[in-house]
Simulated assay, not measured.
Amino acid sequence: MNVSVRDVAALAGVSVGTVSNVMNRPDKVSPETVTRVQAAIDQLGFVRNDAARQLRAGRSRSIGLVVLDVRNPFFTDLARGAEDRAAHDGFAVLLGNSDESHAREAAYLDLFEEQRVHGLLITPLGDAIPRLERLRERGTPTVLVDRQAENRDFSSVAVDDVAGGHLAVEHLLATGRRRIAFVGGPDSIRQVVDRLSGARRAVAEVEGATLEVLDTRALTVDQGRDVGREILDRSPADRPEAIFAANDLLAVGVMQALMMLATVRIPEDIALIGYDDIAFAAAAVIPLSSIRQPSALIGHTAVDLLMREAEGADGADFEHEHVVFQPELVVRASTASD
């Protein structure tokens, strides 16, 4: 037998509206009434028809989050921050992993729109802005995450990746290294482009310094290993003196490859720094220097911005917000100076 809200109200001795408030706005109901209504729900085995409710409300109590690679601990920490903040307001976060694929990203955008999510948080791959503009025009508020909004038409929260790339290579140069290599790609990922831009700027500031770019197809440990093996195949004179990897996963892969034959010493022969400062960076065989991003805070802030977008985006005087955190250099054994 299907149990309705009216059945719950009758058993609890309250109105249907009070039952609705208990389920959606419990702060508006006395604790005693909440307890009584919840007891009736439990006794009757009532399950809310959330699909029907969201049809009436126009939106669900879910937030869509699309990230580039859920295997990267940076994004799992970011998602945790978003989840903690969303739960505070009674929302759930639905996580989608684009896996650096335009097709998968588009599929998640379609799915989340069909589900009438309350709003969307996304780390877009390439130029997804036209698609996101159409999504927003049809009623889904959107915030860019780990990506600054170039046209300022979307609220965004990110880290200054140009500054982060500059900070990483500036540190390598300060240790006396001059032949620097940047490992990262593809260039469809804006964060990679920005980190490389910062690296180039730092090299340009030091006479005699050079920067070699070693492209990868993805930001993964496997791709890092491939680059590390390629470097091992070179003569010592042709190897870089220091490597800046676009994220920690790449850096870990490079480290694993360089240590495989025990012919290259880190940092004596090649210094190595990553980006993100994931938990594993400090626990690596040789603790990895990295550029720290406040991953959980980025997720938390993104939900804050989304809630304000959902409440005020229709107002004529609404202004999108742009939060940019500054990166932090974390020095460990992988870049110790001679």
Rank of each mutant, 00 (worst) to 15 (best):
N2S: 12
R6N: 06
G13D: 04
G17I: 04
V19G: 10
R25P: 12
D27N: 10
V29K: 10
P31A: 02
T35W: 02
R36Y: 01
D42L: 05
F46V: 10
R53M: 13
Q54D: 06
G58W: 11
G64F: 03
L65S: 07
V70D: 13
F75P: 15
R80V: 03
D84E: 15
A86D: 12
H88W: 05
D89S: 14
F91R: 15
A92Y: 08
S101R: 06
A106L: 04
A106D: 14
L111T: 14
E113F: 04
E114T: 13
L120A: 10
T123I: 03
A128V: 03
E133V: 06
R138C: 08
T140Y: 04
P141T: 04
V143K: 03
V145Y: 01
D146I: 05
F154S: 03
S156E: 03
D161S: 11
V162R: 12
A174V: 02
R178A: 00
R179M: 01
V183P: 15
G184R: 08
G184C: 07
D187Y: 02
D187K: 09
Q191Y: 00
R200M: 09
E205K: 06
E207V: 08
D222R: 10
D222M: 05
R229E: 09
R234C: 08
S235C: 06
S235L: 05
R239E: 02
I243D: 04
F244Q: 12
A245M: 03
N247C: 09
L249M: 13
M255H: 13
A257Q: 07
M260L: 07
V264F: 00
A271I: 09
I273C: 05
G274Q: 02
D277E: 07
A279C: 06
F280Y: 05
A284F: 11
V285A: 12
I286P: 14
S289A: 07
H300V: 00
L306R: 03
A313N: 12
D317L: 02
F318L: 06
V323W: 02
L329G: 06
A336N: 10
D338A: 12
